[in-house]
Design a protein around this nucleic acid. Structure first.
Length: 841
DNA sequence: ACCAGACACTTTTTT
DNA sequence: AGTGTCTGGT
């Protein structure tokens, strides 16, 4: 097949304007102006009230009645381009879902004629649910609601042959991509140390985000890698993907773009199909997504372009992975006659939180400018509280205490659920300290993000087996498992197999099945390979007639893969077996193995246990879109937040993105927001003394309190003043508050409170500037639980006891100090736990 | 095939 | 510092 990429102009000029023909083609499926509900078609599940509402002078449909005027305008402005600038907590998702419901209920389109795009599966899922509630459960009727990628796959599967693929192509994940590139680098006789595959994978990703195919990449980029072979390597990669009948994530967007450009008729069909287009989180779109969207959204003059993009330039935090805030800024230019609607009424947070966040973000220059406000007035609302700690360990301890305090209800007499609290960190290494602390406290927590289920070794191995059964051309899967478990097929054999497969341009599995008929291999290798080939033949045969979960189990059994882990005596092995069982279990929800594989490649997340009451720990990035009653923001220090690298590499715009991240963090909070900074932090192993973040100085004094933490060394923070005055002098920069009575009190306190660095340290005494409260309140002793039970009862456990812990499973007691047990867990390794959290097994 | 020691890497992450 | 990956030796 010829290289179908070579002759496609990609980034030069505007594509041909979209179809010129009149809208409203005579598609059978087309609703008339009176709407799809006018007739007696059933099965849409749209509530009957819609029909009543449509006729004559109707009262506002009840789904509209709860909206404020701006939201309502955003929902009801159906024809023509609309940009909704929706600040944090202003009801963005509500607008989006209500708008879809409105389109459906007024009979302007069938569910299948609405294209609604999100970035994450989670957002897509949530939208589906909420539309279902509004419209009465017709969620299956919205086949084109999904992520950019899942919609991309859907389109691509229909027209794969136009870009040289078969419709059963495989979607490779990052790991596969890196392995593939590594092979290519080695094939070029390049030093794979000097030119790391991972780095090149990143470059390709970057190019694809910009919509660039090999001919389009800038000279400089092409030269910068692999002794100037960057472009060739990229082209070789694309070619290799095609022979593997595979795609990477970028291709899921790029291929459809290519297809639309080279087959205008097809694009026309999509134009007719998608009468309404909606995009969520528009500030996060990258160039490729933007191109894709424009191709689909463009309409001839005089035909309304029914595009609605919703976004918030202040929450654009993905510039580093190719998002172009410009897309949002130039919306009005791209779509003529666009109506821009701002949503600024916030329903989430207190005025203090909004005030703090708003004042901070006002320091950014490149923004469209919104100011969030709320009607909520409650003198009991807490200000944002800034805390200082000596080091990250103390920070974790203090946060833990605050959490327990809220949980007990000491503060306001209300007991707070752990589910309502979150710790949002800048970088994931910060999480560890909190986890350690919470383990010791026996405080439930859950980490959001981080290493994912489907990325685990054993899961990826198992998936490789399944992939190869479904898609015998998947050489990457073949290479992954051909010698896993060990079958005596070493590097030499595999390399030989690989080379001869490439030479004859056939998949490796096929090459292997031919090779075992010859004498090319040594008898031992030949036998081993023969067995592998036989196995795959068997499994492929069973694919159509065996229940897929059953087949999956058989594959793992017969291949010896489960045995491999059963025989493995390492600590992780039992956990891995559990994960494999979990994998099979999760397949039950799918109709076929293929369906399951598709799901996994697009939806990498596995759902969390929602029933457990636990504090959430996550990065600021993954917190976007979420909200919590109480939010803890640790690590506000120069170098960490704003991150040094963002500053070094991104300059001013890097700093502004960090500031937006801070803004996102604060605006996650509904009622309480605690910010922490430490004076000493260990970075890459060495202790460094750190300066408080400049963002602290950018917070307005009127909405912020300073907490006095008595054990800390403030290191002359207030006097340092190294950042110059902010542009917001008249609003009293935060730095000034360090000369307030509260601050001085804190300074004075530290002398007598630091005397005991461990046991008797008081937690946080919160000094409320402006509320005139009477100084530090109820002091929480660190490890209160410890103190209590040590005095009362000797531990009921003894060394060697077999115990069970709800999170870590079974283990043996290895040590006892008071009521703190050191336990050697079968799966989780050694942990220190309070004895109240384990029971005798 | 397996292990030990060297070496590298250390912001954010979805799909 | 700590972890994970890769190489080179046995």
């Amino acid at each position: 097949m010829s290289n179908s990429f070579d002759d496609i102009p990609f980034f030069d000029e505007e594509p041909e304007p979209a179809p010129r023909r009149q809208q409203v083609p005579s598609d059978r499926q087309q609703p008339t102006q009176s709407g799809p509900l006018g007739g007696s078609q059933g099965g849409l599940g749209i509530a009957a009230r819609a029909m009543a509402a449509r006729d004559g002078a109707r009262p506002a449909a009840d789904y509209l009645s709860g909206l404020n005027p701006e939201q309502r305008e955003a929902v009801e402005t159906i024809d023509g381009p609309v940009l909704v600038l929706a600040g944090a907590g202003t009801g963005k998702t509500r607008v989006l879902t209500t708008r879809i419901a409105h389109i459906l209920e007024t009979g302007r389109a069938w569910p299948s004629q609405i294209l609604a795009v999100t970035f994450t599966n989670k957002a897509a899922r949530e939208m589906k649910e909420r539309i279902g509630v509004l419209v009465g459960g017709a969620v299956e009727g919205m086949p084109w609601l999904g992520t950019f990628h899942s919609i991309g796959v859907k389109i691509l599967r229909r027209h794969a042959e136009l870009v040289g693929l078969r419709s059963d192509f495989t979607i490779l994940d990052t790991d596969d991509v890196v392995r593939l590139i590594k092979q290519l680098i080695q094939a070029e006789n390049l030093d794979d140390k000097r030119w790391p595959a991972k780095q090149f994978a990143g470059m390709i990703d970057g190019w694809k985000n910009k919509g660039l195919l090999p001919p389009d990449i800038p000279e400089g980029d092409a030269r910068a890698f692999a002794n100037g072979k960057g472009r060739e390597l990229y082209a070789a990669y694309q070619a290799r993907l095609r022979t593997l009948n595979a795609c990477d994530f970028g291709d899921l967007l790029l291929h459809p773009i290519t297809i639309f450009r080279k087959t205008p008729d097809l694009l026309k069909e999509y134009h007719q199909k998608f009468r309404y287009i909606l995009v969520d989180e528009y500030q996060d779109t990258n160039t490729a997504q933007y191109m894709w969207l424009r191709l689909l959204a463009q309409r001839p003059k005089d035909v309304p372009q029914n595009v609605c993009c919703v976004g918030d330039d202040d929450q654009s935090i993905y510039g580093w992975r190719g998002a172009e805030v410009d897309n949002i800024l130039r919306f009005e230019k791209d779509f003529h006659g666009a109506k821009v609607i701002k949503l600024e009424r916030n329903y989430r947070s207190t005025e203090h939180i909004l005030g703090a966040a708003g004042h901070l973000i006002a320091h950014n220059e490149g923004r469209l400018g919104k100011t969030l406000f709320t009607d909520r007035v409650d003198p009991d609302d807490e200000k944002v509280i800034v805390h200082a700690a000596w080091d990250s360990e103390e920070e974790a301890r203090a946060v833990g205490e605050e959490i327990e305090r809220l949980q007990r209800g000491d503060g306001d007499g209300k007991k707070h659920a752990l589910n309502d609290m979150a710790i949002l960190v800048r970088a994931s290494f910060q999480m560890r300290e909190f986890e350690d602390r919470f383990v010791t406290l026996g405080l439930n927590y859950r980490v959001i993000g981080g290493p994912r289920f489907y990325e685990r070794l054993e899961i990826r191995d198992a998936m490789a087996y399944f992939r190869l059964v479904c898609q015998p051309a998947d050489d990457l899967a073949f290479e992954r498992i051909v010698n896993t478990p060990k079958r005596g097929l070493g590097d030499t054999t595999i390399r030989y197999l690989h080379d001869s497969a490439r030479a004859r341009d056939v998949p490796m599995l096929q090459a292997a099945s031919e090779m075992v008929e010859t004498d090319e291999l040594k008898p031992k290798a030949r036998k081993a390979l023969f067995d592998v080939v036989q196995n795959f033949r068997n499994w492929q045969e069973r694919l159509e007639r065996t229940e897929h979960t059953e087949l999956a189990e058989q594959i793992l059994e017969e291949s010896g893969y489960t045995d491999m882990w059963k025989n493995d005596k390492s600590a992780e092995a039992p956990g891995r077996l559990d994960n494999l069982k979990e994998l099979i279990r999760s397949m039950e929800a799918f109709e076929s193995m293929r369906g399951f594989l598709e799901h996994v490649s697009l939806v990498m997340d596995a759902e969390q246990n929602e029933n457990l009451d636990a504090v959430s720990i996550m990065t600021l990035h993954s917190a976007k879109g979420l909200e919590f009653e109480t939010v803890f923001l640790p690590g506000w220090e120069e170098g960490l937040f704003p991150h040094q690298r963002a500053l070094d590499e991104g300059g001013r715009s890097g700093l502004e993105e960090e500031r937006r991240l801070a803004y996102v963090g604060i605006t996650r909070a509904k009622r309480r927001c605690h910010i922490w900074f430490v004076s000493n932090r260990r970075i890459h192993g060495l202790w460094q003394s750190t300066l408080p973040s400049r963002f602290l100085e950018e917070l307005p004094q009127s909405h912020v309190d300073v907490a006095a933490s008595d054990s800390s060394n403030y290191g002359g923070y207030g006097g340092r003043g190294g950042y110059g005055q902010s542009r917001f002098d008249k609003a009293e920069p935060f730095a000034n508050s360090y000369s307030t009575p509260g601050w001085k009190r804190a300074q004075a306190n530290k002398t007598d409170a630091t005397r005991d660095n461990w046991g008797n340290r008081s937690g946080h005494a919160v000094e409320r500037i402006g509320y005139g409260e009477s100084g530090p309140r109820g002091r929480t002793i660190d490890g209160e639980l410890v103190a209590k039970s040590v005095a009362d009862t000797p531990s009921k456990f003894s060394i060697g006891d077999r115990v069970f812990h709800i999170k870590f499973g079974n283990g043996n007691v290895a040590g006892i100090e008071g009521n703190k047990l050191t336990i050697e867990f079968d799966r989780a390794g050694q942990k220190r736990v309070l004895d109240g959290f384990v029971e005798k097994a």
